[in-house]
Design a protein around this nucleic acid. Structure first.
Length: 343
DNA sequence: AATACGGGGCG
DNA sequence: CGCCCAGTATT
């Protein structure tokens, strides 16, 4: 069984938009909109909730107010502004986008043209062109999938969110209000974020309840059906090495697939020490974190760095009083700060 | 500790 | 299409 069209799309659009106009949250990129602010906000809101992104957005706009400033900035400045938001390739892609954008003869106007820029996929191209340019493209993010699955009580099981988004795109396009695509898209996502929650949705106050098959059936939480993702457990031993008031950090190369140009405590297994020395090292902390499909346990141990680390270009000694100048992953920033305060 | 939220890149 | 990116906040 697959999702079917809505019975009264025009009524749905009207009810949704009326609710949005009365209930939209005041957000900086809505109150003072621009193409650049839309682009930056959409990058920050990939994988990140609004509340988390807000302080970063303000700081970013102050430092890099337009495409030209972003294009001209040092990558280190960009990463530092992003520190703590995670998924750092977003920041690198955003700057790559700015550099490509300022080199264009004129701004792209269609989703396909935006899609060709770094960091822009189906969702973000629709968001930018509809919100900033009034182009009639439907956004399909997790919120929209959830709403559409419930409206149609679509019991199809999808293997992951990307597959579901693709499957719902035709329906999303058919429901789109082509006169006000930006507000329509924002209304869908706003409804998903504030009313049509994954768990315990607020059906009693839902403006489109009368269009919703899942609500009528009394089982909104059953939709959408997504297969549970399997989590892999990983254990890493991290080395805490100090020498002459400096801390040893691993700086991933610019080409690294993850954490490019970011710093973390080194993986102890890369220091060339005998396994026995690592195993016997005093444990300073045991930390757990989750990321995408991994559950990672990181054990931080105190070690004496061998002289060979000085020949490794990715290992750098950072004086304690200069740690604020480098960009660390969010968790490592927190752990290092705490461990330094402890000693 | 468990739950909730969540797009794009790349081969 | 399948796998990977190396997360924050709340309860």
């Amino acid at each position: 069984m697959t999702a079917t069209a809505l019975q009264q799309p025009a009524d749905f659009q009207r009810d949704l938009l009326a609710w949005y106009h009365a209930n939209r949250r005041q957000l900086p990129w809505r109150e003072e909109p621009s193409l650049y602010r839309t682009v930056v906000s959409e990058f920050m809101l990939q994988q990140t909730q609004i509340k988390t992104a807000l302080p970063y957005f303000h700081r970013w706009m102050e430092a890099l107010p337009d495409f030209a400033a972003l294009a001209a900035a040092d990558e280190a400045t960009v990463l530092k502004l992003w520190e703590g938001l995670g998924y750092y390739s977003r920041a690198r892609n955003l700057q790559r986008l700015a550099r490509a954008y300022v080199a264009l003869p004129e701004p792209p106007t269609t989703p396909d043209a935006w899609r060709a820029l770094p960091g822009i996929g189906p969702y973000t191209s629709a968001a930018i062109t509809s919100i900033a340019l009034g182009y009639p493209a439907a956004c399909v993010d997790g919120n929209v999938v959830r709403i559409l699955a419930r409206l149609t009580a679509d019991g199809t099981s999808y293997r992951d969110s990307a597959t579901a988004a693709k499957a719902y795109t035709p329906l999303a396009e058919s429901v789109l209000n082509r006169d006000e695509p930006g507000d329509h898209n924002q209304a869908m996502m706003e409804l998903g974020a504030t009313v049509c929650h994954r768990r315990s949705p607020l059906c009693t106050i839902c403006p489109v309840r009368k269009h919703c098959a899942a609500c009528a059936a009394g089982a909104p939480e059953e939709f959408p059906k997504l297969e549970p993702k399997k989590i892999e457990r990983i254990a890493i031993t991290r080395a805490w090495c100090e020498r002459d008031g400096a801390l040893l950090l691993h700086r991933a190369s610019a080409k690294s697939r993850r954490l490019a140009n970011l710093h973390e405590l080194p993986d102890a297994s890369t220091l060339g020490l005998p396994t026995a020395a690592v195993v016997a090292a005093p444990v300073l902390a045991v930390k757990k974190r989750g990321i995408t499909r991994y559950a990672i346990t990181e054990t931080i141990v105190r070690l004496d760095a061998p002289a060979t680390v000085d020949a490794n270009a990715e290992l750098v000694w950072v004086p304690r009083d200069q740690l604020d100048d480098v960009t660390l992953s969010g968790p490592h920033r927190k752990w290092i700060t705490a461990l330094l305060a402890n000693t």
